[in-house]
Simulated assay, not measured.
Amino acid sequence: MIRHLNPVSMPAPVAPLYAQISIAPAGALAFIAGQVAIDADGRLVGKDDHRLQAEQCFRNLRDAVDALGVGTEHVVRMGLHVVRHSNELVGSIFEAGHAVFGQGWPVCASLFLGVEALGHSDWLVEIDAIVSLPPDFDRLACC
Rank of each mutant, 00 (worst) to 15 (best):
R3D: 04
H4Q: 10
S9T: 14
S9R: 02
A12T: 14
A12I: 07
P16W: 04
P16E: 13
L17V: 14
Y18F: 15
I23C: 04
A24W: 09
P25N: 09
P25D: 11
A26C: 09
I32R: 11
G34Q: 08
L44Q: 05
V45F: 01
K47L: 13
R51N: 08
L52T: 12
Q53C: 07
R59G: 06
R59T: 03
N60V: 06
N60S: 13
R62P: 07
D63W: 00
A67P: 09
G71T: 04
T72D: 09
V75C: 13
V76C: 02
R77V: 01
V83R: 15
H85C: 03
S86F: 08
L89T: 00
V90D: 12
G91S: 14
I93G: 01
E95F: 08
E95V: 06
A96C: 10
A96E: 14
G97I: 11
F101H: 03
G102E: 10
W105C: 00
P106S: 14
P106N: 12
V107P: 02
V107T: 13
C108V: 11
A109M: 03
A109H: 11
A109P: 04
S110D: 15
F112N: 14
E116Y: 12
L118D: 03
H120C: 03
S121K: 05
D122M: 11
W123K: 09
L124M: 11
L124R: 09
V125T: 10
I127Q: 12
D128L: 05
S132H: 00
L133A: 09
P135I: 02
R139N: 01
R139K: 00
C142Q: 00
